[in-house]
Design a protein around this nucleic acid. Structure first.
Lengths: 106, 106
DNA sequence: AAGAGATACCTTGACAGATTAGGTATGTTC
DNA sequence: GAACATACCTAATCTGTCAAGGTATCTCTT
């Protein structure tokens, strides 16, 4: 089963914030993590990922900084901001409610 | 709490099919039902509703017929087709999986 | 040393579903 | 007769996602 597109639309920001709420990370790593955790079911294209990062940063929900790996390859790390954390909390509340309501109809 | 926009995007079709899987209904009634069941939290604009109906009908998932109420007002009833029922089933399976995956990240 | 594949970043244009903001018409209630 | 509920619909716009590209470095194999 592959989940993509509009089924996950609108949840991307929440998922990224959720991952970043545990620890700072960078695009490529996050994409791999999503693939592993979802057993390949959750497909997030890079375009969607970077668009989401840009949106989150513009809203002040995450901040970013460049850092090099041991091998010298540059990585752009993202960090959740205090505003990002409170936003995540309210997104989670909405999500729980949305689940209940949708389940009530099907 | 108001749920709207992309949080529900992609689920509209499933919700409508879910409602129609119980009994035929028409636009205005469905909109009211959604409002009541969700205690006003789920906001589905009429434009979204009718766009969705059109899409569902085009895909052959629902069919429609005109019928008058006791007062004489015309209503456009929608009925789920066999294809609509099988589609609903697979949408539900995707939905269950999507819930689990999203919850794994937050 | 050359080539393949993984790591790591990014952008542009098109698409599709949702919203805004209208419109029409009839029935009911005060 | 004015307000409100019932009942339908559309056009233009917005927004998130995707397809399809691009650049560059590092590692492993031959």
């Amino acid at each position: 089963m592959e989940l993509t597109g509009d089924l996950l639309r609108g949840h991307t920001d929440m998922i990224l914030l959720g991952i970043l709420s545990r620890q700072d990370s960078y695009g490529y790593e996050i994409n791999k993590k999503i693939e592993v955790v979802s057993s390949g079911a959750f497909v997030l294209t890079e375009a969607t990922l970077y668009t989401s990062f840009k949106r989150l940063e513009k809203k002040g929900l995450v901040s970013s900084y460049w850092k090099s790996s041991d091998t010298g390859k540059r990585r752009k790390y993202y960090s959740i901001t205090p505003l990002g954390r409170t936003t995540l909390e309210s997104l989670e509340i909405s999500w729980v409610e949305a689940k209940q309501i949708i389940d009530a109809f099907i």
